[in-house]
Design a protein around this nucleic acid. Structure first.
Lengths: 215, 215
DNA sequence: TTGAAAGTTGAACCACCATTCAAGTTTATT
DNA sequence: AATAAACTTGAATGGTGGTTCAACTTTCAA
């Protein structure tokens, strides 16, 4: 779960021994589960430490406060979403020059897969609106900016309408987020790929130049 | 603010005198502001009563608990969003037989107007995910169901693709919600009508039958 | 091996509310 | 005017849960 192995976690005090690193990881994992299940306020520090099988006091060896832990988790989740999509898109570009729509479809499909494996992200990102508003805005503004870049690249290439602007990115993001909530988090029975291809079709004749859309 | 004048509020004890009705209204309005500004947990009962200029104890004359008040507010907000959009769409149908896209555009425009006048809705609905999960699901499932009905009516009329299904409704809802967050709640400088027409164009060639989209 | 640094432990502290309640005031009714 | 019902008031209660801390154990380095 959570990020890689060795880089230091924002907001957490960096452990100096192997034992410390193990404890920190246990705390982060337990916290992700607790916050995902109960939300920030209902999850107590003691519920987190006992899930992690660590003493209450140890918590404060690694975090200044319950808030600091939550903020660390938001950052971690946010950057995981980002890098997950980025690597899926990157992989796609390895082989051929994909169309802008291929890119969006793959980005959504990878997001859906990620969300169904980490259903906590929704609750954690959502609750950051109240616990860490700056991180909340940063998450969505950053995501929208990345989408907009892709769309503008598509416009540049002549595949998408030259009028694409910020609002289009927010519309795409909204679609993706809600499809994820409904079909990755709330239920699993639908195939992610089907959902992604529905979204693709919506975009296909929506932001493609109409002269090409008619084909 | 909040609902009309005389109907009883779900979850609140109905006052029997004019003085009581006035106090209840003050509490509901103060609560909407407090919850909107601080969120459910950071807003204390005493902060609500003192904003309403009412004694702490009076709160419990009208509500069984802080939770009950919040639930009343969620229901109120949810049904206000619903009826606001419904009446805008209803008004549109008075004059002529509008196209399915006209209907969606008007529904979004009215939602954006409503959201910019009631920026609290976002935080209240969002936080209901943690405070009253049943209401949270009900809100989004209900909204999606209403959108789907409209889309299916459009399909019936031959204007929209016959394949429209639940996922399309969720995609539209996601678009609308995020456009509202960005352009009605977070900033105001853009014209709601411009945003609604951008969304309309996205849908226009996305869910319109391609034979017609080519025109 | 040994001392210092790192990490662990859980009881105790404390601040913060949600909620209760008994005593008071206002309003409606006859 | 008189009485009951409705409503108001804010101090007191009780529980929760974040945070601190001093004693203890483990790990690391020389």
């Amino acid at each position: 779960m959570t990020a890689k192995g060795s880089e230091s976690i924002a907001g957490a005090k960096t452990p100096r021994t192997a034992r410390g690193r193990k404890t920190l990881r246990k705390l982060l994992d337990a916290a992700a589960v607790e916050f995902g299940e109960k939300g920030f306020h209902a999850a107590s520090v003691i519920s987190i430490t006992s899930r992690a099988e660590v003493a209450l006091g140890s918590f404060y060896t690694y975090f200044d406060s319950k808030d600091a832990l939550f903020q660390a988790l938001v950052q971690d989740m946010s950057s995981q979403v980002k890098s997950h999509a980025a690597s899926a898109v990157g992989a796609l570009k390895e082989n051929a020059e994909p169309s802008a729509l291929d890119v969006e479809e793959v980005a959504l499909a990878s997001f859906l897969r990620f969300a169904s494996e980490h259903k906590e992200i929704y609750r954690i990102i959502d609750e950051s609106e109240f616990v860490d508003p700056v991180a909340y805005r940063a998450h969505y503004e950053g995501t929208a900016a990345r989408i907009l870049e892709r769309l503008q690249a598509g416009a540049q290439a002549g595949e998408l309408s030259p009028d694409v602007e910020e609002a289009h990115a927010w519309a795409v993001m909204g679609m993706n987020v809600f499809l994820g909530l409904r079909y990755a988090v709330w239920s699993q029975d639908n195939d992610s790929l089907d959902i992604a291809s529905i979204a693709r079709k919506i975009l296909e004749k929506g932001i493609t130049q109409s002269s090409r859309a008619s084909r």
